[in-house]
Design a protein around this nucleic acid. Sequence first.
DNA 1: CTGAAAGCGCTTACAG
DNA 2: CTGAAAGCGCTTACAG
Lengths: 349, 349
Amino acid sequence: MNHPVTSAKNKPTSIDIAYLTGFSQATVSRALRNSPLVSEATRRKVQAVARQLNYKVDKNASNLRTQHSGTLALLFFEDPTSDDSHINPFFVSMLGSITRACTRHGYDLLISFQQASDDWHADYADSKKADGIILLGYGDYLTYCDKARKLVEQGTHFVRWGAVLADQPDTSIGCDNFSGGRSVAEHLLEQGCRRIAFLGEASTHYPEFFERYRGYTEALVDAGLKVDDDLCEVAESTEESGYQAMTALLERKTRFDGVFAASDLIAMGAMRALESRGMNIPEDVAVAGFDDVPGAGFAHPPLTTVRQDTSEAGTILVERLLGQIRGERVDSAILPTRLVVRKSSLRNG
Amino acid sequence: MNHPVTSAKNKPTSIDIAYLTGFSQATVSRALRNSPLVSEATRRKVQAVARQLNYKVDKNASNLRTQHSGTLALLFFEDPTSDDSHINPFFVSMLGSITRACTRHGYDLLISFQQASDDWHADYADSKKADGIILLGYGDYLTYCDKARKLVEQGTHFVRWGAVLADQPDTSIGCDNFSGGRSVAEHLLEQGCRRIAFLGEASTHYPEFFERYRGYTEALVDAGLKVDDDLCEVAESTEESGYQAMTALLERKTRFDGVFAASDLIAMGAMRALESRGMNIPEDVAVAGFDDVPGAGFAHPPLTTVRQDTSEAGTILVERLLGQIRGERVDSAILPTRLVVRKSSLRNG
DNA sequence: CTGAAAGCGCTTACAG
DNA sequence: CTGAAAGCGCTTACAG
């Protein structure tokens, strides 16, 4: 009846501790979890032995038993084109704040990068590896909606960072893209710009950009200007795409004195294109972006942009998701934005 | 004897599929895992029903049974000072390539950010949430060594990105910091620099930086120059620290015509400080960094630096870790570096 | 406060 | 090729 003493090879189990302390395995389990059903003395004895053996509860076993994993999954959608080194810095900030929020709530975070086009690797929840999922990254919104509906049907717990629109099936958290876009356009108008270009794909497929665009057009119209389609150039959210969009715009010889890029990456590419043509920013062309990525302040010239509070965003994403997991009804949320004026748009003063 | 048909509420199990197909649960399990022990017809029937029910194997159950998790954990050490938005871009690249390498090998990735000073949250392996751990991020090397030794004793599978030195207890993967540092100094000398400052903490606590420093001093000595301690300024790897180090250097009124910053972030901060004093780069001072972070090429002026192949690094980290998990003996590895010359250091031509 | 027992949902010898 | 059975290591009613 001798219990094999834990060897260096095999991780200790609660049975080992039970044997060593003389208690039953059930009591050991309770003591380890600080159950009030266990006496102080027992708790101490058990925990001392556990520490000594470097015992850690087997999560696979406890998760199987309790039916939850204490883990959240972050699905990160990226362009098929992007490589290792070019993860959108805005999403990096989000990743940071989401990770921190998870830690605060005692959850672990599983991450997965995927092509927006692929079939989602969204089975983390179905396979019980995660209790819920956070969706991050741009992709075609309409395609997303179809998939989101399926997830909702299946009862998968998930939240998403993105545009908050009417009649969405999911819980979305996003910033106020419309008023952010409007504030940029108003600012450029104040700086004396009269022909303001827009760089970004403004369509129902990319509602974040579309809302920013709508804010921009509204500001123009309110200022008595008309929207000139010649000043709009499609771009996705990369530096390279911004460079190309600006190059295309310049080649069209359309006159413009301001640029609202739908994201900072686009803005940075656009500034590079402008500079390579010898144009001065902001004297010849005032430029503004959106996101306030780390680096926007170090750009040349420092970039005027719209700040989204990633720290708050991450916190809310995690909290709403955990609420959903607890079975609460949670709503979508729109976060305020803030215009950050820097040199790239300041023409006087 | 009627088996309750799976309701929308409860996730289906292999028992449900067994009931629906008429096979035993064991056969269902085999069929789902494409075991050769099962007939083609059975396999198809089982998998069809599984698909229909949106059945996914419960990972907690299968992990418990097989005793491995199919998951790797990435522990990311960061400065206590850093906030969400300032994750070192070099490590972001590593994160990208590690994630991709995991995906290729069919592993999931758990990530955790932690303060280097804290007790490590390294129990992912002990609690069986992960089969192995990847350590990333700078921190005091000597402190690390103590902890690494304990992990090795416990039989924890782990690899680390960092300096590869003699007598290390662990498996480390790092770049050739010494020759990288040497190549930078040689290049600056070729550009006519004679008084080259070094920015970074060169001590045994930070062996990566120390090796870069050693490469730098060797190049100077080989060129018949002497190493001037007055030209060295301690800095940690942040933009802000680089700015401050350069400011301190300038205030000391020591003459210098070149700067080797131990990392790109330091270099970028240093360039900002130089510019704010009206100095021209590279005419007055040639500058070079280390890492080739995304953004180095977009800096003003574009930054000369040493490229570390993060894609290769991530791949090797994951592969060696998986080898270790399989019980193979794996060695540390030193990856080659490549000098990337850009405008910040080009004084003629 | 403690213990004996059941069971979470799988995988895999063992037997046929 | 298939099934009955054991067991991975926990947590938690149930009984005392």
